[in-house]
Design a protein around this nucleic acid. Structure first.
Lengths: 131, 131
DNA sequence: ATAACAAACGTTATATTATAACAAATTAAG
DNA sequence: CTTAATTTGTTATAATATAACGTTTGTTAT
């Protein structure tokens, strides 16, 4: 049994490297423009790579911005518990790592006693620079 | 001084009534098709009404679905603290009202001591029917 | 009542984000 | 090797959202 090491394909590597280098979240078409010199020509090639990278937890989608950011948690293999802080002024986005918060939300039960497999939380405010 | 009662404009009323009647979140263009008989012809008319309705807290946007849902909290005038449960199977969406949760998140401070003015939380799982 | 201002409207065009469909190439596993 | 699964490349198009413009309506202060 060969170990299932997550080998990324060529396009997946290209897209991931762009996202990892970026200072903030990137939009799909901005990624596309950045990788055209490396042979990726069509939106779909980017979106397919993004889909896979999300699936394996290498990146997250910031839903309120339709943008994609690298996951810095090396241990975060599957992104089922995500929290971000977003600055309303400069648009800076940071992933929040707070074990109390993630425990609280992972264990959260709603009024009907239901628990959830996955959540995404986006906080908005002014970052330290902007306030 | 006349009291500032939130008077909705015609288009805002039309759009809101469609969203309130719906069983689940509606997409902008689905709203558009639904209101064309009432004289709204262009996407922008819908989007402008949506923007205003969100601003005054009558509806919320489900970011992961690009869809809009009425706020059932009659007291919820400004939507700065929202939480939803979303079924991965039937796509049923419900707003979560849980005062402990909202207190916890409203008062949440990140590792740098920063607090936030607004948040949006989306939980995913299987609803009672689907599991 | 009316001037001044703000908000909402209508319209056309266009920008942005994302997926469908299909065939070829590559990779992984038995 | 060969079969299955994944990834790729490509064209076209669907779905979501905003820009820009001028007009109309509603509100507030005189």
């Amino acid at each position: 049994m060969t170990q299932k090491q997550e080998q990324l394909s060529k396009n997946q590597q290209i897209v991931l490297s762009i996202i990892e280098k970026a200072k903030g979240p990137l939009k799909a078409y901005s990624i596309l423009y950045n990788v055209q010199k490396r042979g990726i020509k069509a939106p779909l090639q980017v979106y397919r790579a993004l889909e896979k990278l999300i699936e394996i937890g290498k990146i997250h989608k910031i839903e309120s911005k339709n943008a994609f950011i690298a996951c810095k948690n090396s241990y975060c293999e599957i992104s089922k518990a995500t929290a971000f802080s977003i600055c309303n002024n400069c648009e800076h986005v940071k992933e929040i790592k707070n074990s109390k918060l993630s425990k609280y939300l992972t264990n959260f039960e709603d009024n009907s006693g239901m628990k959830y497999k996955k959540y995404n939380l986006e906080f908005f405010g002014l970052c330290n620079k902007c306030k």
